[in-house]
């Protein structure tokens, strides 16, 4: 995770530095993608006319920038996805915490009730002991004082009994009150908690639903776009093929292969065109080793006043702004 974030950051940094840098030098609009740099092609021969190199660099920049953009888009998409995942995870964690909290509260309540029962029992035992002592003292006093004592004893006993009953009643009442209060609080808390939980769940569900809807819409939009892109691509390809054939024909009619050429003789030339079809530049990318042959190819390429190119700008940019021509008389003689 950290690594990928770091990687993205690095890419972003490079991308941004690339942007600012390149825009300080050149300002062509983003263009088509090309992969030529992955496996670097042989460098143009030294006799390359410098005139046309900026164009090539521009082209590359343009291509690179487009790549950057795509890269950034992909990254955003990934981020959104991660966000969504995180939200889901968060919700899950929260739910777990809530459950735990609930369990804890129940436990606490049970412990409290237990403690109260124990206290009540202790108090009862104590009261019993006191009552026994009093009874023993009464018996002694009875023994000492007989009549008076019996009377007072009865009175006292009665009084004590009353007091005890009173205290007991009081205690019971307080106890009951406390119990009721605690219970009320607990119920209230539980209700609140449940309410909160429900709300959260609802929110989550809503969010999920929204996300699903969004994703669906997104998916639909994307597939629509892809279909459109595919259709466009196909159209461009059809156009490209058509003009490719036209260029091939024109060059075949303009090329005089020298008699020294064999089936193995092959020369590669890179062509740069303007959208008007005019030749901007031609460079020998890979010579055949036969100067006369290379010259015949260069001469043929230079002989066309205007190259047949598609009117559609995207198709032109994608295929014909710069391309490679290979001369090889494999079907000759």
């Amino acid at each position: 995770m950290a690594f990928s974030v770091g990687l993205h950051l690095l890419i972003l940094v490079i991308a941004i530095s690339g942007w600012s840098w390149s825009s300080s030098n050149y300002e062509p609009p983003p263009r088509s993608i090309s992969a030529r740099l992955i496996s670097p092609e042989p460098r143009p021969t030294p006799d390359v006319t410098e005139v046309d190199q900026p164009d090539e660099a521009e082209q590359r920049l343009v291509e690179d920038r487009k790549l950057l953009e795509q890269q950034r888009e992909t990254e955003q998409q990934r981020k959104a996805e991660e966000q969504k995942k995180k939200q889901e995870a968060d919700a899950r964690v929260q739910q777990q915490a809530e459950q735990k909290r609930e369990e804890q509260a129940q436990e606490k309540a049970r412990a409290q009730a237990e403690k109260k029962t124990q206290a009540a029992e202790a108090a009862k035992l104590k009261a019993d002991a006191e009552a026994k002592e009093q009874a023993r003292q009464k018996t002694e006093q009875q023994a000492q004082r007989q009549l008076q004592e019996a009377k007072r004893k009865a009175e006292e006993q009665k009084q004590l009994e009353e007091q005890r009953k009173e205290a007991e009643a009081e205690r019971q009442k307080r106890e009951k009150e406390a119990q009721e209060q605690a219970e009320q609080k607990r119920v209230e808390a539980e209700r609140k908690r449940q309410e909160a939980e429900r709300r959260l769940r609802e929110q989550n569900l809503k969010a999920l639903a929204q996300q699903a809807t969004d994703a669906e819409a997104d998916q639909a939009r994307k597939s629509q776009q892809a279909a459109a892109a595919r259709a466009r691509e196909a159209q461009m390809l059809t156009d490209a093929e058509k003009y490719q054939a036209l260029i091939r024909d024109s060059l075949s009619r303009a090329w005089y292969p020298p008699s020294s050429a064999t089936e193995e003789t092959t020369a590669r030339l890179q062509i740069s065109l303007l959208p008007t079809g005019e030749l901007v530049n031609v460079t020998l990318v890979r010579g055949s080793g036969n100067t006369a042959f290379d010259n015949s190819a260069l001469s043929a390429v230079r002989s066309l006043n205007r190259y047949p190119v598609p009117k559609d700008r995207d198709t032109f940019d994608s295929y014909f702004r710069q391309f490679t021509i290979e001369f090889n008389p494999s079907r000759l003689r």
Binding site: I38, I247, Y256, S296, S318, F323, I325
Partner: peptide, 18 residues
């Protein structure tokens, strides 16, 4: 960025001449 799909540059082969 090697994972990106790449389009090969157009190559026209001329195998016949005048």
């Amino acid at each position: 960025a090697t994972s990106l799909p790449l389009r090969a540059e157009l190559l026209i082969r001329i195998t016949e001449g005048v």
